[in-house]
Simulated assay, not measured.
Amino acid sequence: MTLKLDKLPDREAVKISFTANAELKAALNDYAEVYRQAYGQKESVSDLIPFMLASFMEADVGFKRARKKQAERRSYPIQNQVSET
């Protein structure tokens, strides 16, 4: 069985909370079970979610482009917008 999400690496946790509807929670539980079957290792939904989100964002070309532009704007603030002499 092949999943888009690779086996999770060792990690250090930072806690973030969010609310999901019942349908999403059921799908996440199902994903965790499929993950267990694929890799022979049980991982909680809360351990899987950060890696699922990271994988999603890594695959989002538009987000990567926008994030790069955002970083460039932070690195190079506009100078000399109006010069008064």
Score class of each variant (00 low, 15 high):
Gln81Val: 11
Met57Ile: 07
Ile16Lys: 14
Gln81Met: 15
Gln41Leu: 08
Gly40His: 04
Lys68Met: 14
Gly62Thr: 13
Met57Val: 06
Gly40Asp: 03
Ala22Met: 11
Lys15Leu: 14
Lys69Asp: 04
Lys25Ile: 13
Arg65Pro: 07
Gln81Ala: 09
Ile78Trp: 04
Asn21Ala: 03
Lys7Cys: 15
Gln81Gly: 12
Arg74Gln: 08
Glu23Phe: 04
Glu43Ile: 01
Glu58Asp: 11
Asn80Gln: 07
Lys15Gly: 02
Gly62Phe: 06
Tyr76His: 13
Tyr31Gln: 02
Thr2Arg: 09
Val45Pro: 01
Gln41Tyr: 00
Gln79Ser: 15
Ile16Ala: 14
Pro9Trp: 06
Met57Leu: 09
Ile49Pro: 02
Ala26Glu: 08
Val45Gln: 00
Leu3Glu: 02
Ala32Asn: 03
Lys7Ile: 05
Ile78Gln: 10
Ser44Leu: 06
Asp6Tyr: 15
Ser44Gly: 01
Phe56Tyr: 14
Glu23Asp: 06
Gln41Ile: 11
Tyr35Thr: 00
Lys4Arg: 12
Pro77His: 14
Ala22Gln: 13
Pro50Asn: 02
Leu48Met: 01
Met1Arg: 15
Glu43Cys: 06
Asp6Ala: 13
Asp10Trp: 09
Arg74Asp: 11
Gln79Glu: 05
Leu8Thr: 02
Ala22Thr: 06
Ala38Met: 11
Asp30Leu: 03
Met1Glu: 10
Thr19Tyr: 03
Val14Gln: 12
Tyr31Glu: 03
Thr85Glu: 13
Tyr35Ile: 00
Ala26Asn: 05
Arg65Tyr: 08
Ala22Leu: 10
Gln37Ser: 10
Ile49Asn: 05
Ala66Ser: 09
Asp10Met: 12
Leu3Asn: 12
Val82Gly: 05
Val14Arg: 14
Ala20Asp: 06
Gln41Asn: 05
Ile49Lys: 06
Ala71Gly: 11
Tyr39Ile: 00
Phe18Thr: 12
Leu3Met: 09
Arg67Ser: 12
Phe51Thr: 02
Val61Ser: 01
Leu53Asn: 00
Glu58Tyr: 09
Ile49Ala: 02
Arg65Met: 15
Tyr39Ala: 00
Met52Leu: 15
Lys64Ser: 07
Leu53Met: 15
Tyr31Pro: 03
Lys42Asp: 03
Ala22Ser: 10
Gly62His: 10
Glu43Asp: 05
Leu8Tyr: 11
Ser17Glu: 09
Pro77Gln: 13
Gln79Thr: 12
Gly40Met: 01
Gln70Cys: 08
Leu28Thr: 00
Ala26Cys: 08
Arg73Thr: 07
Asp60Gln: 15
Val82Tyr: 05
Lys4His: 13
Leu3Gln: 09
Asp6Trp: 05
Asn29Glu: 04
Arg11His: 11
Thr2Ala: 09
Ser17Lys: 12
